[in-house]
Amino acid sequence: MKTTPRVFITVFLILISFVVLFPIIMVFINSFKGSLFISNAPFSMPVFEGNAASYVGLDNYFTGVKKINFFSAFGYSLWITVASVAGILIVSSMLAWYITRVKNKLNSIIYYCLVFSMIVPFQMVMFTVSKMANILHLDNPIGIIVIYIGFGCGMSTFMFAGFIKSIPLAMEEAAMIDGATPPQIFWHVIFPMLKSQAITIGILEIMWVWNDYLLPYLTIGTEYKTIPIAIQYLRGGYGAVDWGAMMAMLVLAMLPVIIFYMICQKHIIRGVLAGAVKG
């Protein structure tokens, strides 16, 4: 009696899984087909022989990689993500510790400004930030790290602060009595305790920075292209798209994300749950 609905539910979930995976699989299959066959028959499998042969092997990958300079884009994306997230974690954990432990007006103003920044959409500041980056010479792969730290520190300081509040003061005070200076206390007592928080926050920030389009596009996009910018550049001037190269590049863009997901799945899911609590 009870097994019938169970089987039914499982079959249903398998169907949904197929629906969820279908777009990814489809892009993968199409990346081996000629451009014309992608736009004319996107749902058919590649044909290997005969007049209607649509299989082009890795051609799309070669043209795509060359066209948008994929490996340079990958390099910029990787560098910006790693450096920004590391910067955000260090800077915001220090800031969070300071503003939770030192209670004064200035610190609570800083705190509320940071919380406020979490709800402001990027369009509000996109023009002024890009001008600012230009004036201060932050419009390069190193300067953009400063901008990312500034943007990312709102959420991460908020999340770190929430956790630090729950750490009893006694440990820090004991360390202080033993003659430790605040930097020593921070690095040897506090920071090790923030480790799992840092992983969680780091994952949320990685997902944001890696996929971010508009910020890098407006600040460094004309000279240094990250993966999303490079992909968007495949759209030609008048809407002409090289669909073959596009499919191949979409596969290459998704690949690192999927690998990252396979490795850090547990942390990612935990990050999502922790990130949700902030609301």
């Binding site: 004064n104 800083i110 400063v146 990312y148 730290i149 605040p182």
Partner: peptide
């Protein structure tokens, strides 16, 4: 504890505050 830490504003809080001012608050 709070008193000693207070002197370390430049080390702990300033980097974040500067980035935040440049990237968000001033542009805002």
């Amino acid at each position: 504890m709070e008193k000693t830490l207070k002197k370390y504003f430049a080390l702990f809080a300033l980097p974040g505050v500067i980035c935040f001012l440049l990237a968000f608050l001033i542009p805002m």
